[in-house]
Simulated scan of single mutants.
Amino acid sequence: MSGASVKSGAAEREKPIGSVLISNCERFSSLFGITDDVKRMLRELSKNILARKGEIVAKALDLAMRDYEVSEALERAGLDEKKAKRFFEYWFTTVFQGNYDERHCLDIARIGLMLVRGGLPSTFLSTLVSAFLAETLETMGGDPKYASAMARAFGWNLAMMTLSYEILRERIFWKATGIHEEVYERLISIYSKRLMKELVEELKAHYFVMI
């Protein structure tokens, strides 16, 4: 990594979290294809989907909370069953009626941080979002183009939640360790190679067991 890029990374960590989130908001909208047509389709869907949001949220939460770690994290975040239902009904509504603009971006990041506050690992954010998408698709049926719009919207939401977690994790890490960014990235490279080697050995073992 060049000195310029290290300085750039350090400068990024000094920015207010809002400006970092907003700068990535447009990027995610482009990556997921959140166009005006997609937003229009989401609003068209909202009338029928949101009429059943209580049912969808209850089913999705039941599915996600079968995992003990998810259930415990929601409780630690102060979300008992009743509060969790209200919390996710609010978020679910924004998926279909949100503007996917700067304010929406910050709101979804706030939701992500609230979940992380309870100790929910970032990997389980995808479990939650996938559960909601699955239940919504099952409820909706119909035209595949609407399913595509929903997949894009849920993907955007997951990306924003995950980004808020990553910013938090990164800033705490740099604050606590003071480690140089170049050293950190070299460590990632070294340990990723080690872990990949372990996985290759595991895959070989499974292959021989199967045959």
Score class of each variant (00 low, 15 high):
L42C: 03
E198F: 11
R194I: 14
L203K: 15
L203C: 13
G112D: 03
F87D: 01
K204I: 12
Y68L: 12
F208E: 15
V116E: 03
L195T: 12
Y165H: 13
L163Q: 07
S164F: 06
L42I: 03
L120W: 00
K204Y: 14
V6E: 02
F92H: 02
E138Y: 11
V116K: 05
V200S: 14
S2E: 03
E102M: 10
L168M: 11
E166H: 10
K7E: 09
A73M: 02
T93S: 10
R171I: 06
F92R: 00
R66S: 09
S30H: 08
E55Q: 12
I56N: 03
R194V: 11
K83D: 08
E181M: 09
L106K: 06
A134F: 08
F132D: 03
G78Y: 00
R152M: 11
V20F: 01
E182I: 08
S164W: 07
D62Y: 06
A84D: 05
E185N: 09
Y165W: 15
E170N: 12
L187K: 09
E181F: 06
S46D: 04
E44C: 14
V129H: 05
G3V: 07
Y100T: 04
I22Q: 00
L63R: 08
G141I: 15
I17S: 01
R27C: 06
H206K: 15
S2A: 03
L133M: 11
G141W: 13
E201S: 10
I49W: 00
P144L: 12
F92M: 00
S23C: 03
Y68G: 09
E201Y: 14
E44W: 12
L120R: 00
S5E: 06
Y90C: 05
S148M: 12
G119L: 08
T93N: 06
A151N: 13
D67I: 05
L137P: 05
E75H: 05
M140C: 13
L195M: 13
I34W: 05
T127L: 08
Y184S: 11
L187E: 09
G54C: 12
G155D: 15
F96N: 04
A151C: 15
H206E: 14
W174Q: 13
